[in-house]
């Protein structure tokens, strides 16, 4: 029963996800950065474009891709359209650092704890997550379906000798699976809500993970609060976002995410929420997974 219900849910997900990113003002961050973030990530999995949704399986949402391509140049402008992502980045990275240091038994006081580990950043966009991971010592592969994102990411990484080693590639998670690539950690932040088939997407992520490896996924909860803050407030009350920017039904609840990951032989070990404090303008980690959340899971030994 439950399963059937979930599947229906997942089908709904195939609807076009978000049109938001481009306009959101800062405040929206809650929803906005998510929205911002996701599009580029779409790389891995294509959310179906509004019209041509259903078809391609490795499908990317063409509308989303175009939207992201048009603002790709501003990826690294900390005050530009991706500002919310920049603001949230340290918080996401703090979670990644603490969980992965524990997972791989690395010293958290070390400057480069991930030395010698291979990470893939699925939906890397302009590389704002890949670069910090590289500075923390990881050997990073960044993939994105938007060619322009990859170009921007590549150009930017070249500026610093430490990040110039990042391997950026315009491809999808499925293609990497076909190439039989394996990574110690697979990270897909703010991507899954833009993907046509979240369950398939999770299978690909799992297939990319070495046994004993780790997976990190962040997204927006399909909760009433997310509906209220991300859709009603942002789109209808404050007009921060154009109406229709976010598709509430394409969000996954933490329970659904745990379930589909489980079916992809990934056990979720830990979850945390991100909460935004409008007074300080900063994000922090919290137990409240009601709106934005991140999950860390381990690949089961086969």
């Amino acid at each position: 029963m439950v399963r059937k219900h979930l599947i229906t849910r997942l089908r709904n997900l195939t609807r076009p996800a978000s049109h938001l990113h481009s306009h959101c003002p800062n405040f929206l961050q809650t929803r906005r950065h998510f929205s911002d973030a996701p599009p580029p990530p779409a790389s891995a999995l294509p959310p179906p474009p509004p019209a041509s949704n259903v078809h391609s399986k490795s499908s990317l949402n063409q509308t989303e891709l175009n939207k992201f391509a048009s603002i790709a140049d501003t990826w690294w402008d900390a005050e530009g359209p991706f500002k919310p992502l920049h603001v949230m980045n340290p918080t996401r990275l703090a979670f990644i650092r603490s969980t992965l240091c524990r997972h791989f038994r690395k010293d958290p006081h070390c400057t480069r704890p991930f030395e010698g580990l291979k990470f893939v950043d699925v939906g890397c966009g302009g590389g704002i997550l890949s670069e910090p991971l590289a500075r923390m010592g990881a050997t990073v592969t960044g993939i994105d379906a938007v060619e322009k994102n990859i170009k921007i990411a590549h150009l930017h990484a070249e500026l610093d000798p430490i990040t110039s080693s990042i391997d950026y590639c315009c491809t999808t998670a499925e293609k990497l699976v076909e190439e039989q690539r394996k990574f110690d950690a697979v990270i897909a932040l703010e991507v899954i809500e833009h993907v046509a088939e979240p369950a398939e997407f999770c299978k690909s992520l799992s297939a990319l993970t070495d046994s004993g490896g780790a997976i990190l996924i962040s997204t927006i909860n399909r909760s009433m609060r997310a509906y209220a803050t991300a859709i009603i407030m942002a789109e209808y009350v404050l007009h921060w976002l154009p109406k229709g920017t976010h598709e509430w039904s394409s969000f996954l609840t933490p329970e659904e995410l745990v379930l589909i990951l489980q079916r992809s032989s990934v056990s979720v070990q830990e979850m945390a929420g991100f909460v935004y404090n409008p007074l300080t303008g900063r994000w922090s980690l919290s137990d409240d997974i009601g709106v934005n959340f991140i999950a860390y899971g381990t690949k089961n030994n086969e």
Binding site: A78, H86, V87, N89, P90, L93, A94, R97, T111, E131, P132, L133, A134, R135, M136, D160, R282
Partner: peptide, 17 residues
């Protein structure tokens, strides 16, 4: 804090903190 999360230490968003 910036080094811990792999930030570019010259990044203005970090320095604003």
């Amino acid at each position: 804090e910036g080094v811990a999360v792999g930030s570019d230490i010259g990044e203005v968003s970090l320095l604003r903190r």
